[in-house]
Design a protein around this nucleic acid. Structure first.
Lengths: 225, 225
DNA sequence: CTATGGCATATTGGATCCAATGTCCAAGGC
DNA sequence: GCCTTGGACATTGGATCCAATATGCCATAG
């Protein structure tokens, strides 16, 4: 028997489809922050009833991407620059550990993939793609790591600040800096220098955070961290 | 008008109640790992329909506490000792940062609360309570920190390994060690020494992790970290 | 005696319907 | 004129019903 078999049990349920699509739309900023999510409106868009929509919404809330109030509905959760900075701080703790774990496990193929994504990122003329390409590059480097829980948490963190990442890439020299930093990280990986890759990645994330705080100044409220 | 008014909008929906109860039951080990969660059975227990139960289940899955397979149902997710160790590694990264942030913000009241919980923990004769008391102590110390996202992530991490924490407290000298280490951390907080509290907490968590790996040896599989 | 196919039952996923609550606006009292 | 109040409409939360799938048993063919 030689044909591509698919695991039918992995076919997505309606609620999963709705969840995935909404999640993507939210982190990409397709749905502006604060916008209400009407259940029947979404249900109509997907040609389903509101039941799967509600399950998707409850999952999105559990992920922190939306906020709901009883009998009032759900709105996509926005992050202040301060809150986003905290998420970046967490990323700066986690992701260096992930890449340190991943470097000694990187196959030749993984590295060539990473390089491919790195150049694709640097050469893409379309700012709309930058967010995705950036994320794919990072994910490729983290892939070989066995720290699955770390990766899950980091994924959620990236989800939450994806909009800020995208904004930060288009402003000023964000794209050029990210590009050169990506290259440095990649070279360190290719040379098998896990510690250097880890440090460079930490700086990369911290750099993004500072650029963010610069361009989205907090409304001069209370003490800064 | 002088009577205690309650914010009705904060009353929990059925799905939230089910979620909270199930979550607690799972992390406390009341429901053994691998046990299936039957929707209508749970619905009957709470005198509701299966709808809120399903929302609770989808949220629990999003939190990683259970796993579901389409048309087959949900089972509570178990963690191998290796996986639990990874969660402890993450805690050892995050929680020291939280307490470092919290120490300079601790009020006199917070510290006295912490001391109260610390002694309550050390004096409780009932091993069933240890898990809760331990958690309350930690939560009290983290409370003043403004790192809300860190706290959320740490909470989820603790949820996932709560059963291991409980097991680890009852075996050998787990309780005594936790007790003395708690005291040392508390004293550091009282003295306003954030760095020392942070280091002690890191050691505290790492110690728990190692004790865990000792008493729940991995089935001699592949490489250890 | 084994294995295959066909039922019956159990269980989940989804649709539709009803109840509960929020929102908005217009009518009426001060 | 402004504020309250009542009711129509919109929207969410939950219950009930139906469809799709899995599981177990049994009969039966080989």
């Amino acid at each position: 028997m030689k044909f591509p078999a698919v695991d039918v049990s992995k076919t997505a349920s309606a609620s999963t489809i709705v969840f995935d699509v909404l999640r993507k739309a939210i982190i990409e900023g397709k749905i502006p922050e604060g916008a209400p999510l009407r259940q029947d409106e979404i249900a109509n868009m997907f040609n389903t009833s509101r039941i799967p929509v509600r399950e998707a919404i409850s999952r999105l809330e559990e992920q922190g991407l939306i906020k709901t109030q009883r009998y009032k509905g759900a709105v996509v959760a926005g992050l202040s620059a301060d809150e986003a900075a905290e998420v970046f701080d967490l990323r700066a703790l986690l992701e260096p550990e992930i890449i340190r774990d991943a470097v000694p496990r990187m196959s030749r193929e993984c590295l060539s993939d990473a390089r491919k994504h790195c150049t694709a990122f640097s050469q893409s003329p379309n700012p709309m793609e930058w967010g995705d390409l950036n994320r794919v590059f990072h994910k490729t480097l983290y892939g070989p790591s066995t720290l699955n829980y770390f990766k899950d948490v980091a994924d959620n963190a990236m989800d939450r600040v994806e909009r800020y990442i995208r904004a930060q890439l288009v402003i000023s020299d964000g794209m050029e800096r990210a590009d050169s930093e990506h290259l440095a990280i990649l070279v360190a990986c290719e040379e098998g220098d896990a510690d250097r890759a880890s440090l460079l990645l930490r700086d990369h994330i911290n750099g993004a955070k500072h650029s963010l705080l610069e361009h989205f100044p907090t409304p001069a409220r209370h003490k800064k961290r």
